[in-house]
Design a protein around this nucleic acid. Sequence first.
RNA 1: GAACGCGUAGCUCAGUUGGUUAGAGCAUUCGGCUUACAUCCGAAAGGUCCAAGGUUCGAGUCCUUGCGCGUUCACCA
Length: 703
Amino acid sequence: MPMEKQYNHIKYEAGIYALWEKANAFAPQEVNKKNLKKSKKSFSIIMPPPNANEDLHIGHARFVAIEDILIRHARMKGLATLWLPGADHAGIETQYVFEKKLKEQGKSRFDYEREDLYKMLWDYVHKYKDSMYDQLKRLGASCDWSREKFTLDPEIIAIVKQTFKSLYDEGMVYRDEQLVNYCPNCGTSFSELEIDYVERDDLMYYLDYGTVTIATTRPETIFADVAIAVNPQDSRYKKLIGKKATIPLINRQIPIIKDSAVDKKLGTGALKVTPAHDPTDFEIRKRHNLPTVSVIDSEGKMINTPPEYIGLRVADARRKVVSMLKDRGVLIKEVPIRHAVATCYKCKNTIEPMISKQWFIKVKPLTKDALLAIRKKQVKFAKDKYKKIAVHWLKNLKDWNISRQIVWGIQIPAWRCDQCMEWVVTAGETPNKCPNCKASSFTQETDTFDTWFSSSQWPFATLMTTGKNDFKRFYPTSVMETAYDILPFWVIRMIMLGLYKTKNVPFNNVLIHGLVRDKNGQKISKSKGNVINPLVMVDKYGADALRMGLIWGTLIENDISLSEENIRGQRNFANKLWNVARFVSLNQSQLKAMSRAPRSQNKNDHAIIKKLRRTAKIIDKEIENYRLNQAAENLYNFIWKDFANDYLESTKSRRSKAQPTLEYILSESIKMAHPFMPFITEAIWQNLYGNSQKPLIFQSWPK
RNA sequence: GAACGCGUAGCUCAGUUGGUUAGAGCAUUCGGCUUACAUCCGAAAGGUCCAAGGUUCGAGUCCUUGCGCGUUCACCA
C-alpha cells in the first residue's frame, strides 16, 4: 500500500502509542554486560510529577519533549532505560482549586468533616490524574506506566512518615512558634508563595511614646508592643538605648533597644516592636529575647486590650484607637503613604501575621552535606548558572517549616498525650502508651506536611516501592530534569533528603529548563490571553511537530519563545521526512531495513554515508551535552538539505543503482529522528518494515 | 538592597576551551505546479555582534566600566 502524499498524524498517533504499549516497549530492557559500571548500562529519569489538579500546559510539554528525547536516545543506545511517571497531590494548590469549585456550588470546606473532604479531594484528583496521564501519552512520553506513582500512595506515605520519625528521633525536628500568614476570612495560614503584596495608600500615624516618637501604619497594635527599637548607628537615639518609652492609652513602660534591622530612614527611625503581628518584629524579638503579646485572634478580632476594644474587628479598632489617641493629644500627625500590604491570593483580604506553633526541620546538617556533594561533583549541574543558584540557596536556607493547616496532604504522625501534653511521634501508627506519663489517650496533630517535604523524597520513595528491585538498579538516577522555578523548593531539598535517607545523592546530573513564552517573549498567562494549549497544537500539527518546536532554536536552560509558525515549520519538516520515505519506497514492492552500508557506491553514495555517520556522532555528542537544539538542527539539516535536496536529487538519473544506498540512508535517518519525532518515524517504519522488523523504538542507534 | 542572567539579521534565537567570509527558523523580495513533497523547489536581500576602554598576532567570545532589559529573593514600621 503506497504512502499518502502527506503525513496525516491524526491517522497514526493513537495507534502507534498503543503499539508501543502492547510491545511493552517502555519497560527497562535487560543489559547483560556485567563488566560495565552501572552508569554505563542504565539510564533513568524520575519524571517531575505534574500536579494532579489541572490539564497539562505547554510547560509540561517542554519537559516531556526534553526527557523523552534523552530516554529514547538512551534506549536506542542499548542502556537499561527507565522513565518513571507520577503525579503530585499538590497540597495547597489543589485545595485552592478545589475550594473554588466548591464555592461555585455555594459550599465551602467548612461544610464538611475532615474525612469527607479528603475523600472528595481524592476523587477529584484521581479524575485529573487519569486525564493528565492520557495527555502525556498523546505527547509520546515513553514512560513505564507499570511503575507509576502518586505522592499519596500508601507505600509512599509510609516512607515519608518514616523519614519524619527518624529526623525527629535524631533531634532534627522541633516545634516552635512561628509567625504565619493567616487569613482570618479563609481560616487558614498560607505560605509565602500564596501571599500577594498589593500597593495600597494608607496613613502613617506618628505617636508620642514619651521619650520617643514612633511612626506606624497599625496603631491598633500598640497594645502588643513590647519594645521600641532603633538602629545602633542612629546618632539621634544613641543616648536613649536602655531607657524606657511609654505606650499611650495604657501607659505601659517598654524598653528602648538597638537592632540593625531598623531602617533609619523609615518613619522616625524608631520602630515599635510588635512581635506577634509583624515579621520583622518577630525576628527582633528572637534576637533580644522579648515577650510576645497577641492582640488579634484567628477571627480577626481584638483580644488582650482594654475592654472597650475587645471583640472589635481590626479596621474598627484602628478607627477607635486613632480617635482616642487624638483625644489624648498623643497623635502628632498623619502622613499619607503608599506601601505594599500582604493580602490573601484567594479572597484578597489583608493577611494578619499571627503566632502559632509549627513543626520545623533543622536544615544546617542537611545543607552541609548537600553542598559537599555538589562540590565533589556527585551531583553535577548541566549549567553553571543553576549550580550557582542552588549553592546560594543552600547557603542561605532557613529552618524549614513543614506543617500546613490544610486537610489535603499527609497528616503529620505526631500525637499529643491528653494527660501530660507531651508529643509522641511514630511512623504512622497511633501510640499505645505515653512514654512520659503512661497515659493511653492521644490527639493527633491535624496539620499536614508541606507538599515539598514528601516530594523531596520522590526519587528514593518511588524506586523503593515499585516492587521491582529498581532502587538497586537505578538509584541514583541519571538525570533530574525540571523547570527552574522549583530549583530552590524541590531540587536542593531532594539532594538534602536523598543524602539523609540513603547516604547517596538522588541523581547524578541536574538539568534545568527555562519557561515557555509566547512568540514575543512574553510570559504566558490566562489574563494576557496568549495561552498555547499543547493538545490543541497536537491536534493541529501533530505531537512530533510540537516536540520539535519546543526544543528548536533555543538552549534548554533558557526561556523559549514558542510560536505557532515555528510548530508549523516543524510539521513541514515531518512531512519532508515522510516524503523522502515515500520517494524511496515508490515503485519498490519490498524494502529491507539495512543497518550496514551497501557495497556498490559512487562518489555521491560515499559522501552521504560519510555524512550520515558524522551526523549520528554529532547528535550523540549534542544529546550527551544536553544541547538538544543543536542536535535537532543537525538532524534537520541532514535530512532536509544533505539527504533530500542534495543526495536524493542526484539519484534521480540513476535510480536503480542508488536504491540500496537510499534505503540504507532512509532507515538510518528514521532511527536518528526517532527520539525527536517518535510518532512519524515509527509510522514510516511500520509502513516500510512493519512485517519483518521489531518496532523502531527497539532499534539500535546508528553507529 | 542582593543574587543570577540577557543585549548578535525585521522577529525569535544559536554561535562549545578566543582562530577562515558571524549562522538557523520565521518574515521579506524575485523566479518556478521539475513525474517524493506547493506543508515544495531555486535564488536574493538583510548584521558597526548595546557603548567605551583593556588583554592578545587575533575578540561576538576573556577583563573593566557604563547604559538598557529580565528573573528570583529580601525589605516596605
